[in-house]
C-alpha cells in the first residue's frame, strides 16, 4: 500500500506537470487581466496608463462586439445542430450490418484529420468559388446562376465547412456509444411489441443522451475558438458578417495593436468559455467517480 515514501515520490512525479500548467495559466492570465485595465497600444510605446474599465466599456459597447457575439452563437449553435443530428443519423446507419463497414467508417472519419486551413481553403476554392468551383460548374450544368457562397452567405458557408470537420467526431462518439447498447434490451423490447420508433425514442435516445451531451460540450469548447477557417476564407468579412469573438479579439490585438482593448476582449471570452466549461467539468467529474 501507499507508504509515506511512495507518497512523497508521487508528489515529486506530479509536480513538474502541475507547476508547468500552473505557470501557463497564471502568468498569461494575470497579464491579460492587467493589460485589460491599461491604455496600451503597441504603436504608441511608453504611453501606457491605467484607465480603469474604459477598455471594457469600449469593447462591450462596440457594435462589432454585438455582431461578433451573435455570429459566435450562430456558428456554435449551427454546427452543433448539424453535427449532433447528422451524427446521430449517421451513427444509426453505420450501426446496421452492411458490406464494407470498415471502409465506410474510415471514409466518414477522414475529414476530422484534415487540418483546418486545408479544409477551409479546399471548400473555399475548389467547391464554393463562383467561377471555377465545383458547385459553380454544377450550377452552370443545370443552367442556373452560380452562387457566391462566401460573399452572399459568409457565416453560413463557414458553418458548413466547420460542420464537415466536426461531423466525424460526433458520429464516431455516438457510434461508440451505440455499440455499447445492450442488444438484449432491444430484443426484449421488440418481443414485447415495441416498434422501431418507440425502440429509438425509449431505449436508444436515453442511452445516447450522455454521449450527445459530451459531444455538445466538447465541441462547444473548440467551436468557441474557431479561427483558422475564418482567417483563410473571409477574414471576418464582408464587414463583420463572419467575425466571431475569437477573430474580433485577434483583429483588435494583432492587427490594430490595441493590447488593452484586445485583453479586455480576452477576459470576456474567458468568462464566456468558463460558463460552458463548468457544465462539462461536472459531467466528466461524475464519470471519474463511477
Amino acid at each position: 500500500m501507499a507508504t509515506k515514501a511512495s507518497r512523497a515520490a508521487a508528489r515529486l512525479m506530479i509536480s513538474p506537470a502541475v507547476l508547468l500548467l500552473l505557470g501557463w495559466m497564471i502568468v498569461p492570465l494575470s497579464m491579460t487581466l492587467y493589460f485589460s485595465f491599461l491604455r496600451y497600444n503597441l504603436l504608441m510605446p511608453g504611453m501606457e496608463e491605467f484607465t480603469g474599465w474604459t477598455n471594457y466599456r469600449f469593447f462591450l459597447t462596440d457594435p462589432a462586439f454585438t455582431a461578433a457575439l451573435w455570429n459566435t452563437l450562430l456558428l456554435v449553435g449551427g454546427v452543433l445542430l448539424i453535427t449532433t443530428v447528422g451524427g446521430t443519423l449517421l451513427a444509426l446507419l453505420m450501426d446496421q450490418p452492411f458490406w464494407g463497414q470498415g471502409i465506410v467508417r474510415i471514409l466518414v472519419i477522414a475529414p476530422f484529420f484534415v487540418m483546418p486551413t486545408v479544409s477551409a481553403l479546399v471548400w473555399k476554392n475548389m467547391f464554393m468559388n463562383p467561377v471555377n468551383g465545383l458547385f459553380a460548374h454544377l450550377a452552370k450544368f443545370f443552367g442556373l446562376q452560380p452562387y457566391d457562397f462566401l460573399a452572399q452567405a459568409p457565416l453560413g458557408s463557414i458553418i458548413f465547412i466547420v460542420s464537415w470537420q466536426w461531423l466525424p467526431f460526433a458520429t464516431l462518439i455516438l457510434l461508440t456509444a451505440l455499440q455499447s447498447l445492450d442488444q438484449e434490451q432491444l430484443e426484449a423490447a421488440e418481443m414485447d411489441g415495441a416498434g422501431p420508433l418507440s425502440r429509438f425514442f425509449y431505449i436508444m435516445v436515453p442511452h445516447l443522451a450522455r454521449a450527445i451531451t459530451v459531444v455538445i460540450l466538447i465541441q462547444t469548447i473548440f467551436l468557441l475558438s474557431v479561427f483558422a477557417e475564418i482567417l483563410v476564407t473571409t477574414n471576418g468579412g464582408p464587414g463583420v458578417a463572419s467575425t466571431n469573438l475569437t477573430y474580433l479579439i485577434y483583429m483588435q490585438s494583432l492587427l490594430q495593436f490595441d493590447v488593452g482593448g484586445g485583453s479586455a476582449g480576452g477576459v470576456v471570452a474567458i468568462i464566456l468559455a468558463n460558463i460552458v466549461a463548468i457544465f462539462l467539468m461536472r459531467m466528466i467529474g461524475k464519470n471519474l467517480e463511477a
Binding site: 502541475v18 484586445g262 476582449g265
Partner: peptide, 18 residues
C-alpha cells in the same frame, strides 16, 4: 486532474496578447 482539464478550457485567444 480536474484542474488540469480546466486549463484546457481556457480559450487561446484569452491569452493571445501576453
Amino acid at each position: 486532474l480536474m484542474w488540469m482539464l480546466s486549463t484546457k478550457m481556457l480559450p487561446p485567444v484569452g491569452v493571445l496578447v501576453p
